[in-house]
Nucleic acid binder design. Structure first.
Lengths: 243, 243
DNA sequence: TGGCTATTGTAACATAATGATACAATAATA
DNA sequence: TATTATTGTATCATTATGTTACAATAGCCA
């Protein structure tokens, strides 16, 4: 979870469901690297995943969508629940105590943010080129970090990212979700490198191309690409709508 | 969710995490039919999935395991989270008001059980022949129901069962979980009928047998089967441990 | 007792999917 | 204009899956 803007919180968490948080692993893809959005709490070096709470009359998925939208400036984000983190051992109020103290709050022991939380994990897939990372009020920063060079994260957020990546990889074959990480038009090579990055292994080019095209979900865009000292690749576009 | 024994509850839900429930879809397999455990609240015809709440210091998965164990009398139950049901539209305190009234309680509007709950769905796979269905204190009954002839269920429990079945089907190919629904020793025909029931389609016998045996996770038990007017099938046993 | 029946185990072949190699096409560069 | 790197795709090899076929056999019944 992450702590909400000061104007929304009080000692009792009025207006939010208590003890439940949402953590969103927002993936982007750039320079052949998978990226995740991370924020640092104001005046600290505590890094965390974007997160939030559920309003009393808000749908769970809408709350996750709201968090992802606020951090990226995007609508229509591809989002999926992947796991609920509910071990009691996750519970560690110390970082939040410090974060609040450092920023001039002096919460009582019973402050709702210092209670145990059960965290519902979502992952989001966004177009890196379209997202505008925006920190929530209590964060200094909101930036893309390469998956392989993330700073240490509070609580079990590193494991949450790991589990999100596994869920993403498992769904890549079945569902057709990888396209959400690319711009509208992309080359087959870009798509393949995306798959290779997520799955963590090399794929054979002819087989990959045959399989993807065989799905019948891409249309070849007439325009071509310029830039490299070699044959120009076609651009493709995903036919179906985002889910 | 389901309401816990009277001796554990009070107006405030002391000792439990508020607003979060666990619903378990406990599957069994018998007579070539998938069964689920359902309970009727005392003195009503409100049917519900087995469920429960999370104790203040209890791991989420342990809470689900506790619920499944109490309803079946089994240990080492195969359990898996499959979805969190968090739409606001789920919220409907009327059945619980009635259930409590009928059973001599007169809860205030602010009774914790009449608040909105976010429900974490688990499915469990158990050996039908070993389970002993046991109702919780506030239920009259706890029985196996065929998936195709369930009574109407409270709230969105029918959809929860449906979603659990989909998750089970999706995992059947990848993970090796079907065996948890069978006794220790089983024939290839029994296993195939289990798969056919879960997946809702016929499978070709030679291909199924070849594929399952090719996994190398079954050992053929020396003993044979008696009963039918035909060649006796081999018995097989799952080699790996339950997870 | 010996054929009949239903089901099992598995071989054999057909088809489809995937893995791997090869090579022509071509856009920028020198 | 030749060179180079990469792309698109054909081709063959291998593996997986779909399908048909048939021998084996446990109980049944004449």
């Amino acid at each position: 979870m992450s702590i909400k803007p000061a104007d929304e919180i009080n000692e009792n968490g009025t207006g939010f469901i208590k003890n439940v948080a949402i953590d969103t692993v927002i993936f982007g893809f750039h320079d052949n690297m998978l990226k995740v959005l991370l924020s640092a709490y104001k005046n600290t070096s505590y890094f965390a995943l974007p997160g939030g709470f559920i309003r009393e009359k808000e749908n769970l998925n809408d709350a996750a969508r709201r968090v992802a939208s606020e951090r990226t400036g995007l609508d229509d984000i591809f989002l999926e629940q992947f796991y609920v983190f509910g071990d009691y051992a996750r519970y560690d109020p110390e970082p939040f105590k410090i974060i609040m103290e450092v920023n001039g709050n002096h919460p009582s022991e019973s402050h709702w943010l210092l209670q145990r939380f059960i965290s519902i994990g979502y992952y989001a897939l966004v177009d890196f080129t379209k997202a505008t990372p925006t920190p929530a009020a209590i964060f200094d920063s909101c930036n893309w970090y390469d998956l392989n060079s993330m700073p240490p994260l509070i609580q079990d957020h590193t494991q949450i990212v790991q589990k999100a990546l596994e869920a993403l990889g498992a769904n890549l074959d079945n569902k057709l979700i990888g396209f959400n990480l690319l711009p509208e038009d992309f080359t087959m090579g870009e798509l393949q490198r995306l798959y290779e990055t997520i799955l963590g292994k090399k794929l054979l080019r002819p087989a990959f191309q045959r399989k993807i095209l065989g799905l019948g979900i891409l249309e070849r865009v007439a325009k071509k690409w310029t830039g490299g000292a070699h044959k120009a690749p076609y651009l493709y576009r995903f036919i179906s709508k985002k889910m």
